[in-house]
Amino acid sequence: MELKRNAFKAALREGRRQIGLWCTIPDSGVVELLAGCGYDWLLIDTEHSPMDPVQTMPLMQAAAPYPVSAMCRPAWNDAVLIKKLLDCGAQSLLVPFVQNAEEAEAAVRATRYPPHGIRGVSGCTRANAYGSVAGYAKRAEEELCVILQVETVEAVDRIEEIAQVEGVDGIFVGPADLAASMGRVGEPAHPEVREAVTEAVRRIRAAGLPPGVLSSDRPLLESATEAGAQFIAVGVDAALLRRGAAELRDSW
Rank of each mutant, 00 (worst) to 15 (best):
I159R: 04
P115Q: 11
A127Y: 00
E160A: 15
I159F: 10
C72I: 00
W76P: 02
V121L: 12
G123E: 04
I171P: 03
L94G: 10
E103W: 02
Q91H: 04
S132L: 15
N100R: 04
D87N: 08
N128K: 01
P114D: 09
V80N: 06
I147D: 10
C88K: 00
A134S: 15
T125W: 03
Q99I: 01
L85E: 05
G167L: 08
K138E: 15
S92H: 00
V156T: 02
L81S: 11
P65S: 02
V95T: 10
I171G: 08
P114W: 02
D78R: 04
V156Q: 02
T125L: 08
C145V: 09
A106T: 02
M57L: 13
P114K: 04
G123C: 06
I171F: 05
A134K: 13
N100G: 12
A90T: 03
I159V: 12
T125C: 14
Q91R: 08
A127I: 00
V68K: 03
R126G: 10
A129K: 11
S92A: 10
A107K: 06
I147T: 13
T125I: 10
G167P: 11
A62Q: 02
E166H: 07
I118T: 14
A79W: 01
A110L: 08
E154D: 13
A137K: 08
A110K: 04
